[in-house]
């Protein structure tokens, strides 16, 4: 019987096309990019061997350091805010709105599917100062929080990007964590309540530990996306003012396509890859410990 499920010809037919395409379009270019890191130049001018030149350049490049900082700061800020807002939304759905949460859930989820470029252009106008002050600018001014041009300072522009990406994606994490919270058996909550656990204590000692796996997958999923941020930044601030909001992804794109340096561009891409893998491993390492006992 095993022979039917071990039919080599069938395996080749089923797996072959996917594996071949994946190898040719992803694995081979990955290795190829690694090779590029030892060269300088581009397709038009030709390549010349540069040894470890790109790596010493990367180490000393203040712009690369700034881009790495933006990537890490953005990744940390948006991931924490997304998952935290998602968790609060999920608590709202499950414990406050209960059966009537469908409408709010559907509404808050909607921006998730909107094209990033469209949302970014919308936020640009919401925080614009010309030709007329945008709606969000007016609202923040009314609260006495910020005056003047949001995009004139690095901090202001950074805040708008973070705000936009949290606005866009908190509904997704809300639904993801909501599904996780629904899996907590009602009897568990009930017996905890009988033991006198309510409000914050119920969340802290019962709900949070039981939903930790879904929080963890949300964090991994989120950080994997936020470290690769490109569309939001490019469409909203174009990395500006100056290069204050330029992350590694955008810096790599500029280096390769605007300045025509494929070798250095690939080196930046490699740094980004190492950061992505490193951070993901770090989260998994951290997660082995029980967070509720920390």
């Amino acid at each position: 019987m095993r022979s039917v499920l071990g039919d080599r010809r069938a395996i080749a037919v089923l797996l072959g096309p996917a594996l071949l395409l994946y190898t040719l379009v992803m694995l081979v270019p990955m290795g190829w990019s690694l090779g590029y890191t030892f060269f300088t130049g581009n397709v038009i001018e030709g390549f010349s061997f540069d040894g470890l030149g790109n790596f010493t350049k990367l180490w000393q490049d203040p712009q690369a350091r700034s881009a790495l900082r933006v990537t890490l700061e953005y990744g940390a800020a948006v991931t924490v805010a997304q998952v935290l807002c998602g968790y609060l939304l999920a608590l709202l759905y499950v414990f406050v709105l209960r059966k009537s949460s469908a409408f709010v859930r559907t509404l808050v989820f909607f921006p998730v599917i909107l094209p990033t470029v469209a949302v970014a252009l919308m936020f640009q106008k919401l925080f614009a100062i010309a030709p007329q002050k945008g709606l969000a600018g007016i609202a923040f001014e009314a609260l006495g929080l910020h005056h003047g041009d949001w995009f004139a300072s690095g901090a202001g522009a950074f805040f708008v990007i973070v705000l936009m990406d949290v606005w866009r994606s908190m509904g997704f994490y809300g639904v993801l964590i909501y599904a996780g919270l629904l899996d907590i058996p009602e009897e568990t909550l009930e017996s905890a309540r009988l033991d006198g656990a309510t409000g914050w204590r119920l969340i802290r000692h019962i709900v949070l530990p039981l939903s930790w796996p879904v929080v963890l997958s949300s964090l991994v999923f989120s950080i994997n996306g936020t470290l690769k941020v490109f569309d939001s930044v490019l469409a909203l601030t174009n990395g500006g003012p100056g290069s204050d909001t330029t992350p590694l992804t955008l810096y790599m794109f500029r280096t390769a396509f605007s300045y025509g340096d494929y070798g250095y561009g690939s080196t930046i891409a490699l740094l980004l890859t190492v950061v992505c893998l490193g951070v993901t491993l770090l989260i998994f390492r951290f997660s082995r410990r029980d967070p509720t006992k920390g």
Binding site: V25, P29, M30, Y36, K228, F253, T273
Partner: peptide, 8 residues
């Protein structure tokens, strides 16, 4: 990240 495969 996709940046790793773009140039080749």
């Amino acid at each position: 990240p996709s940046q790793m495969i773009l140039l080749p």
